[in-house]
């Protein structure tokens, strides 16, 4: 065996070290990915299983007689297309309005000096800290008898079972976790050099035009993130939707699926129904997965510019 020089041995040791570390890293990442993906994949596979797979002892993870029946039944008892359209519409509207309000407010907080600015910032953080459960009863009653605390005449309108509670809170930046979006947008605008806007002002553009034509184009990555989060949280939310609305939305329809299945088949069979419950869950997750896959490259690579840093 050739005698190794000292340098060579060091180099080898270094290479060995990086190789071992790479192996360690791969194993770790695979393990974590497994933990994250397992529930999704198990739902996916069981959503395609048929009754024969249930009896077949050799079937564990992958169905041998895949079928679309579970999806068919799940869609039927959930009244899927109607519920899906409702949820999609509400989530798109809410996410868009939240995006508009948080971009405006975030820009106002980041760029203009005025009295009470820090107070508004503190208020935005405060909205995140208060559990919505604490304000559930007053909110419910205010939307039930909506007269803006006596500003409108009469007993007030009943805005429950209408999208108005969502629209009004989203456009005013007080919707679900909206404070967080305001902070994200503020952080982003704070990090942008002022010279861009100054050039626009010198050219005679007003604040609103400067904001729309100069600032917004560079804010697109952050805005995508805010929109995605707004959409996802609204889509998944069952707290406010069940508080304000009747059961015409995906999370609610899905949470009632077991009862509905029992009514539909006029029997209960937890093992067999489980396939359809999982099909229902997949139906709710699928749009999010599709959206995430489309946006993720954009999303994952652009975090450094979103200003998510505290």
């Amino acid at each position: 065996m050739a005698v190794l020089t000292r340098e060579r041995r060091l180099v080898l040791r270094h290479r060995m070290g990086s190789f071992l570390f790479a192996v360690f890293r791969t194993v770790l990442i695979l393990g974590i990915a497994y933990i994250i993906l397992f529930p999704v994949l198990s739902k996916l596979s069981s959503s395609f299983m048929s009754k024969r797979d249930l009896i077949d002892q050799t079937v564990r993870y992958v169905p041998k007689h895949p079928t679309w029946d579970n999806y068919r039944f799940a869609m039927e008892v959930m009244n899927f297309w109607r519920v899906f359209t409702n949820s999609l519409l509400l989530s798109v509207v809410v996410a868009t309005l939240q995006l508009v309000s948080s971009t405006l407010v975030g820009y106002g907080l980041a760029r203009f000096e005025f009295r009470g600015r820090n107070l508004i910032l503190a208020a935005a953080i405060f909205t995140l800290v208060v559990p919505p459960q604490m304000m559930m009863v007053p909110l419910y009653l205010n939307w039930r008898f909506f007269n803006i605390y006596g500003l409108l005449p009469g007993q007030g309108l009943n805005l429950l079972n209408s999208p108005w509670p969502f629209i009004l809170t989203a456009i005013t930046g007080t919707g679900l976790r909206n404070g967080l979006f305001i902070l994200v947008m503020r952080q982003f605008f704070t990090g942008i050099p002022r010279s861009l806007e100054e050039a626009a002002y010198v050219d005679g553009a007003g604040p609103l035009r400067t904001f729309i034509q100069v600032m917004l184009p560079s804010a697109v990555p952050s805005m995508v993130v805010v929109f995605l989060f707004g959409f996802v949280w609204q889509w998944n939310d069952s707290f406010l939707t069940t508080l304000y609305l009747d059961h015409n939305f995906l999370p609610v329809a899905l949470s009632n699926i077991t009862t509905r299945l029992a009514q539909y088949f006029e029997m209960t069979d937890p093992q067999y129904f489980s396939f359809m419950v999982n099909a229902g869950s997949m139906l709710m997750i699928a749009p999010l997965l599709i959206m995430y896959t489309v946006l993720q490259r954009y999303f994952v690579e652009s975090i450094e510019r979103t200003g998510l840093v505290g």
Binding site: V105, G108, R111, F112, R117, A124, T169, G173
Partner: peptide, 19 residues
């Protein structure tokens, strides 16, 4: 500062009324 208030006005209203 007036422009600042205008930009943050939606949130000021929302915070008072709905929060």
């Amino acid at each position: 500062s007036l422009t600042g208030y205008l930009f943050t006005l939606p949130f000021i209203i929302g915070f008072i009324l709905f929060f």
